[in-house]
């Protein structure tokens, strides 16, 4: 094997090899990844959609224009869906930044910092998301006055904050776990080479953690996206609220299932590729010890 040219005298990681050995040993025949292949998943979903539609058609043969009604409301509800995605992206961004800081605080050498950040993480990680949302909606004012300047805090922004709290706690655990997963020998060798703690963390440990943290982070994002309709409960006008309003305006109970199914389909189409991608990354990064 040709030695790899390094332009630094620091003991950095070698570039990742082309193919890492995939761990197949532990995942036996019952591994859901094998049974639940993309084709099977999409097939199941399609079967579900068709069965529901057939069921609906059978139940209400005299109700034409279900598709027409869906088509009529789709643009409006889709706007709401895009708003859900915006909320998910913003919550994820805020949660990731705050969570990374919190996660690093969890591995601090100062016991007080470590303890406080551990407590914060555990608190937000084990609180129901909806309860956190309610707290944010009720406790944050609707506008802040700073030196005569009035900054409005609209409900949707409060809900972004509310959702970013559990994300923060989960990211914090991902970061802490990621750092802890790096063999201790890496820290020790860095120390023998006279790296400071900060240098070790930023130049040696974190770059290695990054790819390990990717799959759980993406997983968290998919879960967050699917949880965003929670904000409809606290009065934010998202796709769920709009669907409900559309149903009220139509006043046809036979639309109930197809309308919600349409929304479900959009979320599925958005989240499923993320899930596939996560699985692929996990496979790529799993190595035999």
């Amino acid at each position: 094997m040709k030695p790899i040219a390094c332009h630094t005298d620091l003991p950095v990681l070698l570039p990742p090899g082309p193919a890492l050995t995939v761990a197949r040993g532990e995942s036996g025949f019952g591994d859901p990844r094998r049974i639940f292949t993309p084709a099977v998943a999409i097939g199941l979903f399609a079967a579900f959609v068709i069965s529901v539609l057939v069921n609906e058609a059978a139940a209400a043969p005299a109700a034409p224009g279900i598709l027409a009604a869906l088509w009529k409301w789709a643009p409006l509800i889709f706007q709401g869906f895009l708003f859900n995605l915006l909320v998910s992206v913003l919550s994820m961004a805020i949660g990731t930044v705050a969570g990374t800081a919190l996660g690093l605080a969890q591995i601090s050498l100062l016991p007080s910092v470590r303890g406080a950040s551990w407590l914060t993480t555990q608190f937000f990680r084990n609180a129901p998301w909806l309860v956190l949302l309610f707290y944010c909606m009720l406790l944050l004012p609707f506008e802040i006055k700073i030196a005569g300047l009035t900054i409005p805090l609209p409900a949707w922004f409060k809900s972004v904050i509310g959702l970013s709290l559990p994300v923060m706690a989960n990211v914090s655990e991902v970061v802490r776990g990621g750092v802890r997963s790096i063999p201790l020998a890496q820290w020790e060798s860095a120390e023998t080479l006279a790296f400071t703690r900060r240098q070790t963390l930023w130049m040696i440990i974190l770059p290695q953690c990054l790819k390990r943290m990717m799959p759980p982070w993406m997983n968290l994002y998919a879960i967050l996206t699917m949880a965003t309709p929670l904000i409809s409960i606290v009065g934010v006008q998202d796709s769920m609220t709009l669907t409900r309003a559309a149903l009220s305006a139509e006043g046809r109970s036979e639309l109930l299932v197809p309308m919600y199914l349409m929304l479900l389909g959009w979320f599925f189409l958005y989240c499923y590729p993320i899930a596939r991608c996560t699985v692929a990354l996990e496979r790529r990064f799993t190595v035999k010890n």
């Binding site: 409301w73 643009p75 409006l76 009220s248 305006a249």
Partner: peptide, 14 residues
Amino acid sequence: KNDYKPWGFLDPAG
């Protein structure tokens, strides 16, 4: 209200 036809409800344009 935006879900209480016909006192207050949505039209498809939002």
